[in-house]
Amino acid sequence: MSQELRAVDWTGSGIALIDQTLLPQRTDTLDVQDVDTLVDAIQRLVVRGAPAIGAAGAYGVALALLQGEREGWTDGDVRAAVARIRAARPTAVNLMVCVDRVMTRFDEGLDAVLEEAVAVQREDVAANRAMGVHGADWLLQRVGAGRPLRLLTHCNTGALATAGWGTALGVVRELHTRGLVETVYADETRPLLQGARLTAWELVQEGIPHLVQADAAAAGTILRGEVDAAIVGADRIAANGDTANKVGTVGIALACAYAGIPFLVAAPTTTVDLATATGDDIHIELRAGDEVLEWSGVRTAPAASRGHNPAFDVTPGRLVTGLVTERGVLEVSAGELPGERLK
């Protein structure tokens, strides 16, 4: 894969998004020229992954300004449009953080807003590169296998989910550049298959050996001793280290704890929400029940059945062996808490 792959980019008049709902069958780009389209794209998962959504939100402020100029909006109209972007997905804190950051330059005009949005994207790529190195070094010291590692990951945390390179998958990519990946177990990630469709696609581009497995197979794979470590991303991390990530993550963490292998969370510091004390305070997005009741538009459950479709779950900090950010690794389960170390 080209290291220049960008899930989110500014075109000069709008936002270009790789349409992740179409991968791996098609690689199309959605040209976003208005706020309604951007909000819809975020909610439909055309763009997804906390850092990528953050970058989209940052550029969304510029998009709102341009649309306001075209359509004669008042200042209040533009701010209301930005607020809609900010609230498009409530669990991922990066969206709110990045929009708020860019809004500090709102009164300076479009050029200043774009300058800040570009900085958001540039800094995320640099942070991902740094956490890849930190995470790889920590895993090699912790596991000490003396051979290439067998890794498990959940959902998609690569270049598609970020401004570039990746978080958890960035750690995998760094290990791969050192010749230290034997195989990656990529959980399929029901119900929208971000692992089977997106992570597997990225691993193919990189030439990284991998196996796609059902989410329900993950715990058994770990307990059979076939995994050296699990690496996942995060959408919000509380001050005590509790971590919200794609639904299914907490089961992986429990299996790792039982098996005595590392469970590593990789996320930039923008994902750490020090204003959220514990995972109990994290709002969990409930998506449409049809996502679990249908497949490709065909009903698979009885007509009378209703769907329960939380997009995320919360892993207690005591199960997080390591939290890797661009600053290094916190051993959360050993008492190194984000609220104390990342202030």
Score class of each variant (00 low, 15 high):
Val272Cys: 12
Thr271Tyr: 01
Ala136Glu: 01
Gly289Ser: 12
Thr157Phe: 00
Ile18Leu: 15
Gly49Asp: 14
Asp77Tyr: 11
Ala161Leu: 05
Asp40Gly: 11
Thr74Phe: 13
Ala217Cys: 09
Ala168Ser: 07
Thr153Ile: 02
Leu151Asp: 03
Gly54Ile: 01
Thr269Tyr: 01
Ala58Arg: 12
Gly158Thr: 02
Gly279Glu: 03
Gly135Arg: 05
Gly307Ala: 03
Gly146Glu: 13
Asn94Val: 14
Leu114Gly: 10
Gly170Met: 03
Glu226Val: 04
Ala219Tyr: 03
Thr278Pro: 06
Val133Trp: 12
Glu226Trp: 02
Glu188Arg: 01
Gly279Leu: 02
Arg26Leu: 10
Glu206Asn: 12
Asp75Leu: 12
Val118Cys: 07
Ala288Ile: 07
Pro90Tyr: 07
Leu274Tyr: 05
Asp9Trp: 10
Leu198Asp: 11
Ala277Trp: 01
Leu193Arg: 09
Pro51Trp: 04
Arg197Gln: 12
Glu115Phe: 04
Leu180Gly: 08
Val247Phe: 02
Ala239Tyr: 03
Arg129Gly: 15
Arg318Asp: 04
Ala56Asn: 09
Phe106Gly: 08
Asp111Gln: 14
Pro316Gln: 07
Glu71Thr: 13
Asp215Val: 00
Ala117Ile: 08
Ile18Asn: 13
Asn156Leu: 03
Arg224Leu: 13
Ala52Thr: 09
Arg129Asn: 14
Arg318Phe: 01
Val329Met: 09
Val324Phe: 11
Asp281Val: 07
Ala159Asn: 09
